[in-house]
Design a protein around this nucleic acid. Structure first.
Length: 292
DNA sequence: AACCAGGGTGAGC
DNA sequence: GCTCACCATGGT
């Protein structure tokens, strides 16, 4: 892979990258827009535009001091080719990864992932996108995410009026916890289990939201979020005898190891895109894994 | 008109 | 530890 920076443009070559899958319909980030083939986004107040190239992508509007920020954001230091090899024991996982080359797991600021996934509870991707847009537009400043201080001062009435529903007080109380010293950023350097337990103390954060914050915002690649899609696919293809999401979450690390969360992304998207049969089976070359 | 969506919480056991 | 009703909202 070659990375080149010149006068505000970061050129990345020699990497497979699918902006539609990774940015627009990723369900890991909710505020990127596509306009005439140009992808517009921002993170922590840095606005950029991305253009897909044949062999990678170009990123416009990058300040020189932010080059390493965006390299980390797009997870460009990771070799995604390794994932298929890691999954050698599980052909279904190998095929899921192989079917979606160009899918990457972004490294977002933990705060942005945290509020996005508090809003994700019992919600769908379209509506999460809508809520994030409204939150940025009506609570944030200059078109960026609202700061913890800003959100902590917001009224529940306003948040309910833009459609947050019963999640409104969760947002405010969690923002308040951050303002009062909850060490969100520091959790990145804590072990997975400790960080997970800490996140569970925040209002509106359970196992699933905590795992999303850890995977997408804290660099904890073993975090394995279990939503309804992942629950279905894991029962169908990997552990048909399990009954609860909690048990699936526990066993996923034993199965997939340190990079369970990255593998989860491929499995999740294959299931959601209908590339991995869950109920009625048509033509598929995937074989359920036999119990050992 | 019920059912679903990248679930969390509190009560009861 | 576990299960379960309830929680807003927009789309189907």
């Amino acid at each position: 892979m070659q990375i080149n920076y010149n006068e505000g443009t970061l050129c990345v070559a020699g990497v497979q990258f699918d902006p539609q899958l990774t940015l627009i319909d990723s369900a890991q980030v909710f505020h990127w827009k596509e306009i005439d083939g140009l992808y517009i986004g921002h993170s922590e107040g840095r606005a950029v535009q991305l253009c897909a190239e044949a062999d990678g992508f170009s990123l416009f509007g990058v300040q020189e001091k932010d080059v390493s920020f965006w390299i980390h954001y797009f997870d460009l230091n990771r070799d995604y080719g390794e994932l298929i090899r890691i999954c050698g024991e599980y052909p279904v996982a190998q095929q899921a990864i192989g079917r979606l080359p160009g899918l990457r797991v972004l490294n977002q600021p933990a705060w942005e992932a945290l509020i996005a996934f508090i809003l994700s509870a019992n919600n769908n991707v379209r509506r999460i996108r809508m809520l994030i847009d409204r939150l940025i537009c009506s609570v944030g400043k200059n078109g960026f995410f609202p700061s913890p201080e800003c959100l902590a001062k917001e009224s529940e009435t306003v948040l309910r009026s833009i459609g947050c529903g019963y999640r409104a007080p969760y947002l405010i109380r969690t923002a308040d916890a951050i303002c009062n010293g909850f060490p969100l950023e520091r959790l990145a350097s804590e072990p997975y289990e400790k960080a997970h337990a800490m996140l569970l103390t925040l209002p509106g954060v359970g196992d699933k939201v905590a795992d999303c914050v850890q995977l997408f915002g804290l660099g904890h690649s073993q975090a394995f979020p279990v939503d309804v899609w992942v629950e279905r696919l894991m029962k169908k293809w990997f552990m048909p005898e399990t009954s609860s999401k909690k048990e699936i979450r526990r066993r996923a690390y034993d199965m997939f190891g340190e990079y369970a969360g990255l593998i989860q992304q491929s499995l999740f998207h294959c299931a959601r895109l209908g590339l991995m049969p869950l109920e009625i089976e048509k033509q598929s070359n995937m074989e359920p894994r036999k119990a050992t």
